[in-house]
Design a protein around this nucleic acid. Structure first.
Lengths: 329, 329
DNA sequence: CTGAAAGCGCTAACAT
DNA sequence: ATGTTAGCGCTTTCAG
């Protein structure tokens, strides 16, 4: 493998000049520039990025911590982030935490070991104090998941509004006994739940604690929820699911029990992922502009990278959220 | 940020000894080891990975090129790879090519710039010669996607067998006019198609060239295929879809046209992803042990990394594939 | 506009 | 068992 010294020698110039050409610095004669390019091509030279990183003390890489990639929400989020990242010559290092506290810490160490310049959380298992302490090593952003007392910038949607809106819709459709299946942890989950609760309270509807479920967002969780509901005495007529995956599981299981949707049981999703349109009946759901959050998050990251001095204490950015009406309610 | 020199000074030892402790080398007294640990903790020392990489001339990172992550096939594949990778202290750098030839080349350069030690393709847009030329920079593996004349190790399933098996099943169910929707490029797609064709030929069934579709694996492709089929004069009674996504799209669209499945039209999927169970009716499909391929691929990568001298010219590894019977046929 | 030289932080001979 | 030292390949002052 050729090094910068080889190129310099072949071009009859110094390593400094070659470096200047590589990095598009001004003040290099066109003639010498051509000489360098030629030598680089001849030697099939490519700069060694470890050396560059060590010298420049930056990696142009951002770690993105997601619980997993099999939940389609995250690939879409990442797609949004990546659109902005590539424009800014940043690389994403995608890290699956699998909801594991220790894995999360391991990935946080990417910041300490200078393997990445910044880090984005899309779910948190550790407490904020722990995480906040890593901020000295580089910018950290919370995306989607959040906790308001954090001294960490946050990009999120108004979850409260989303679930409030969804619940109102269910109530307007005549439902009185509505079950709720959360899943998201932290304040995001709490906000969603609060939106649900407030909408119910506003209409003077009671919420049975037995109809409040808390399962991770997956198809299987949805199936489980439905079975548990069927075993209840005072069966809810509608379910507000925490995600389209859960809602899809509920729908699927309901049909295996020959229940009609929405007549026997109505289901509200959350996210509006492709799966929402696919299941039969298709899901009425709360649309989150997932890619939009991803983009916004990366934009903030970039501005933090460019401007490390900014005080970003507890900034919250919010994006719109809307109700998509289909067939499941 | 503390460096190894700081730790050495505080511990009253040389940098070499500290390095030995970091890298778990033998021949360090327990006493001194403790001294080092203590100093590291006190200074909150973490080794700079750029420096380690530059010095060791390896990154312990493998690039995985996928078309995208929104097609659930790839997250599952990655999950398999990652299981093996973490066990071996390897990091995955997931790269979305978006089916773009140039992006693919950009990612290939990760090898040249020494940013990764090896690289795995799960889809190829460039020709093999181009790719093969990068092999001098580190091991390259083709996973799933393949071309048999490649001088590159390949991990794949017997696609021919899969589609042959599926088509036989369709024929046994009485179908005579069967449409086929491929999508995968290269020989993988060709093999699948050949399996289909051979099964048809064996039963002396004709294949109308108009019923041979070639669309990328997505729900929308499926919808499109169904609409085109409905516009045909001599309508097929069954469709062999190239993926569960396509099959799901077909099923969805068929129902919007009030067609019954499998009575009016039967659909065979490919992959057996969660979506296969979710749609109504659930998909009869060809199960690929996706995670298994991922694991196997990473195992090969690791052995290539450990044993760079091995001649891995055109090795093919195959894994079992099976028919999963559900409701769509 | 170009070159010389210092050094980013670490590891691996080599020496003891 | 531990320390000394020479780089890994690159960028960036500082001179000129």
């Amino acid at each position: 493998m050729a090094t910068i010294a080889d190129v310099a020698k072949l071009a009859g110039l110094s390593r400094a000049t070659v470096s200047r050409v590589i990095n598009n610095h001004p003040y290099v004669t066109d003639k010498k520039k051509q000489l360098v390019y030629q030598a680089m091509k001849e030697l099939e030279y490519y700069p060694n990025s470890s050396a560059q990183r060590l010298r420049k003390q930056k990696t142009d890489t951002i770690a993105v911590l997601v619980p997993n990639l099999t939940n389609p929400f995250f690939p879409f989020l990442i797609e949004g982030m990546e659109m902005i990242a590539v424009e800014n010559h940043l690389q994403l290092l995608i890290c699956q935490t699998q909801q594991d506290k220790d894995k999360e810490l391991t990935f946080l160490n990417l910041l300490k070991t200078k393997q990445v310049d910044g880090l984005i959380f899309t779910a948190i298992k550790n407490d904020l104090e722990t995480i906040a302490s890593y901020q000295e090593c580089g910018p950290i952003i919370l995306c989607n998941e959040y906790q308001s007392e954090a001294k960490i910038p946050i990009i999120r949607l108004d979850q409260y509004k989303g679930s409030y809106m969804g619940t109102r819709f269910l109530i307007e459709k005549g439902h009185r006994n509505i079950a709720y299946c959360g899943g998201a942890e932290g304040e995001l989950g709490a906000d969603r739940q609060k939106g649900f609760m407030d909408a119910m309270k506003e209409s003077r509807l009671e919420v049975d604690s037995k109809s409040m479920f808390r399962y991770p967002p997956s198809i299987d969780s949805g199936k489980k929820v439905l079975r548990e509901i069927l075993a209840m005495e005072n069966k809810p007529t509608a379910i507000f699911a925490g995600s389209d995956e859960v809602a899809a599981g509920i729908v699927k299981e309901a049909k295996s029990f020959k229940l009609r949707i929405p007549e026997d049981i109505a289901v509200m999703g959350f996210d509006d992922l492709p799966i929402a349109e696919l299941v039969e009946p298709s899901l009425t759901t709360i649309r989150q502009p997932v890619k939009g959050i991803g983009k916004k998050t990366m934009e903030i990251m970039i501005s933090m990278l460019a401007n490390p001095s900014t005080n970003i204490e507890n900034q919250v950015y919010e994006l719109p959220i809307e109700l998509v009406i289909r067939e499941s309610i």
